[in-house]
Amino acid sequence: MIIDLQAIGLATLGGIIIGLSVTVMLLFSGRVTGISGITYGILTQSQWKERAWRLLFFIGLLVGGVGLSIMYPSSLENTLNIENGKLVIAGLLVGFGTVLGNGCTSGHGVCGISRFSLRSITATGTFMVFGMIAVFISRHFLGGF
């Protein structure tokens, strides 16, 4: 087991910033900040008004990413070397699964658990366990990362 105090401190700080962002969305717009739901809403909402704020949040994520790439480039470093085919399967599963299950790490993991929602607590436990199983299988039977 790796205990990295600096990483733990940054993870906590980053988590608080994420908590602040979802609080801003709730306080001003009364919305749950679920990234998968927001992305799916851009693709499917029929009213322009409902589409527009989701699109702007999505653009904000991209712009924030650009900010990170300039001011803190190491935060976007990806040292994994995953085959494209495996990455496509990962993306399809994440896209399909988050819409079917009504949420991802943000919607269920952060917003839902903060509300003490039983659905979100169950979903979060489920995706974490399956994530661990997928990493185990990937590492031992699919050639690693």
Binding site: A90, V94, F96, G97, F127, F130, G131, A134
Partner: peptide, 8 residues
């Protein structure tokens, strides 16, 4: 399904 994709 999401968790599996996340881990992959």
């Amino acid at each position: 399904l999401f968790g599996t994709g996340w881990g992959l």
